[in-house]
Design a protein around this nucleic acid. Sequence first.
DNA 1: AACTGAGCCAACCGCCGTTGT
DNA 2: TACAACGGCGGTTGGCTCAGT
Length: 335
Amino acid sequence: MGRAPCCDKASVKKGPWSPEEDAQLKEYIDKYGTGGNWIALPQKAGLKRCGKSCRLRWLNYLRPNIKHGDFSDVEDRIICTLFASIGSRWSIIAAQLPGRTDNDIKNYWNTKLKKKLTRLVPLSQRRPHLAITHAPISVFQTSTPSLHSSPTLPSTSSEFKCTNNNYHITTARSFTGYELAPIPSSHLNSTSSNSGASAVLQVEDGYMGSMNDYQVKDSLPMFGGDQGSCSSSDGSFSNLISQGREVEYEFGVSNGGGHMGLQGYIYNGVEENPKLLSNCGGVNGYVVEKASGLYGETPLDYSLEEINQLISSNISNNLNFFVDGNKAEEKIMYY
DNA sequence: AACTGAGCCAACCGCCGTTGT
DNA sequence: TACAACGGCGGTTGGCTCAGT
């Protein structure tokens, strides 16, 4: 048996909201708040609407500080960057754009921004780029009891010991997605490589090429345990590292009251300057945040053209990099 | 003026996770 | 533990507007 409907569909009004209804809803919420119960609200407010409809109307239109109208270039860039990174997680993207709603951003993306980006860079001009796979992890420090916390997630597979301290990172499960980071071709030229702990990164070589997984031997933490997915048709990723590509990494965990994580980068195949970002007790969540292709560069430093390369080349390759079966568990961290 | 199609966006639908009983 | 109720989310739809013919 399916779930009972949240309201009597026959007796509720549907369709566009009238100014009177808007005023009624606004007045009620201004006066009494939502009361944490949207289903009961319409009746109390004297509205013949479904609670969900009221909620949507309030969140997307009536609540204070909602911004309507044109999106700025900065907003465009944030949307594109986040879309390239996390996909169509509109609520998360909206959380980074004050005054914008997820619905607004979704509509904007579907009707305008996607087309705008498609026009920007011809397929033939797309550059190779790098994707670093991320996975939920649990982090705990072994040397200082006060920072230690028991990961609530089942730990699996690998353990990472940072080269110059005692932080251990244990992957909690395998990959759920990854981020993309372009690496300019000018950064493809040097040599050297380390072996040691490994990270699984993904590299796309060429705009029409297929996405291949590569296992990178380096002193990066192991993200996830899906070794079976790794392949190395031409050894490209190893070459990239050995050619001196720079890879920045940053990841951590959050418990709602704070977070901790590690940050560092690989240069010429060597992990340098790994450091603890911040710390907090009772870590029981996990977040993995970003990797970028060029040390010191953040995703927001990319031009729209570069962002477009990330998005469109993945779309053109029919990649499913937005899929995450455990979306509720993932959050984005901003240090 | 009438028709048509594209673009836009508010609103709906249904699924999923969480919470309470 | 099972189930219902609810909130939240992303995908989709339907209706309005406007430009082009």
